[in-house]
Design a protein around this nucleic acid. Structure first.
Lengths: 267, 267
DNA sequence: AGGCACAATGCCGCTCAATGGAAAACAACT
DNA sequence: AGTTGTTTTCCATTGAGCGGCATTGTGCCT
């Protein structure tokens, strides 16, 4: 009966995720270490078959979410950057903060960081660094741990307590040194930060440094971001840095519409 | 015959664009004047029926491309900003340029702009502005005309000649004043810019200002961006600004890997 | 408090856009 | 010319996406 070889081409394969999710999976295949990808890499990293990857990537290119160089490698497109710059917690925040960050940088001549909380990490929204500043730690758009950076501690200290607990439950370590963090000590640190409206974080490795961070309040009186300066240990005069950071943070809060923007305890 | 009311629910409606295009149409519904949208607004601005908009927006939220506030309004999500920050022509460029832009700002105490070409316009990648600087003109992520801004003229002057012609063919006007641009004069201006590696653009309204711009070269020796300072007319000493901008632009080019980065004519 | 307009969400049966394996075209190596 | 890996084209199938409609929620003007 099967004289004819009956083409089995066309049998619809089992499907994966919905199209939209796949499209964004393509975008998520890019990271700091992989800013440009070939079709094959894109396919492997996103887990989508090559042919589907090509079809989808083609659509993303047509819109401008991806670009393709002369060598055939894909990169994130400028059109995506353009709409993404409308993110209130990204560019919107940065726009208000940047001039004040510039002031801080001029005074300290080191690094000035602006970060927000995203999930269980801090996301670096902006960084100003003088030429003569110490080696760079984090890049803009990158993620920082909440429990072992100045900005992270501030964001954690002013987060909802339910979220704090979920973080404190997990085992935490300071990363380059790989030393464990005591939950009790961290709890005490967070209380101090809330009391002072200021966090001071010291790190030994890779270089000894001090980070002084303060919260930034939005119009609804909640903490939306953290501002900090990072200076080398020997350079440090935290007693002088504290007021400077707090003042800048307060100025930014006022720029965001906060009225009673705190930064110091009522008494 | 039609005794039964025969439910016509379910008849598949005529479809619009493919899903992926629609998803990005949702993102494109946001702009500088509309950073947050209700479901209805999002639906109207993207041309997608409400129910479909809700379903799609839900998926975008699950991924983090959109966020929804307590008031039900949608905004661009931070996760999108995060991947978009990997765009080589956006953040990548900015990362190299920022320190040198900072130097320029400190000297001039006014605006420093960094822009790339995107389609027939310039896209503002970064802007530094001192507090005491004159009123702000453009925002980061916004678009500028090629033919009536300093950075735009540089990008146009160093673009492929086929593209230049396509621009020169169209009728152009300087915008706030609404005066027409003479193609012959523009052609001469572009030739001068190529010769000098420097553009000087003056504008009367809304305030008299001078913009001095220089090209930034990438590793392949092509112009990928333009750098400029914008200062008020009375303040201006273009003879001094020129070398400063050119030096900074050259430093950035070198940072991008350009070896023979020009900025002045060979002789 | 009733009526009106608009916004947001839930529901569901129909179909066509999206699907991935196969194979061809292309490239870069021996 | 053979081997290996990447990119692109082709296509028969089918479940994910479709939007009209109904319902509920929310302000605003009588």
């Amino acid at each position: 009966m099967s004289a004819e070889p009956t083409r089995v081409r066309g049998r619809r394969p089992p499907q994966g995720d919905p199209v939209v999710d796949r499209a964004f999976a393509l975008l998520a295949a890019f990271d700091a270490g992989h800013r440009s990808l070939t079709l094959g890499e894109l396919s492997r990293r996103s887990g989508i078959p090559t042919s589907s990857t090509l079809r989808l990537a083609g659509r993303l290119m047509a819109w401008g979410a991806l670009e393709r160089g002369a060598d055939g490698r894909f990169t994130i497109g400028l059109r995506l950057w353009e709409v993404a710059s409308l993110a209130p917690r990204g560019q919107g925040l940065k726009q208000v903060a940047l001039p004040f960050m510039g002031d801080l940088e001029e005074v300290t001549r080191q690094h000035v960081l602006l970060a927000v909380r995203e999930g269980t990490e801090a996301l670096l929204v902006e960084r100003l660094s003088a030429h003569q500043a110490m080696d760079v730690l984090y890049r803009v758009g990158g993620r920082l741990p909440l429990h072992s950076t100045g900005v992270g501690l501030v964001l954690l200290a002013f987060a909802e307590s339910s979220f704090q607990e979920s973080v404190l439950v997990q085992p935490l370590t300071h990363m380059p040194e790989n030393t464990p963090v005591s939950p009790a000590a961290l709890r005490r640190t967070l209380a101090e930060i809330r009391r002072d409206g200021l966090a001071t974080f010291r790190r030994r490795a890779p270089q000894p440094l001090v980070s002084v961070a303060a919260p930034i309040f939005a119009a609804d009186e909640r903490v939306v971001a953290a501002l900090s300066v990072v200076v080398p240990q020997e350079h440090a005069e935290p007693r002088l840095l504290g007021p400077a950071v707090r003042t800048a943070a307060r100025a930014i809060s006022r720029g965001l519409g906060a009225r009673r923007a705190i930064g110091a305890p009522p008494a």
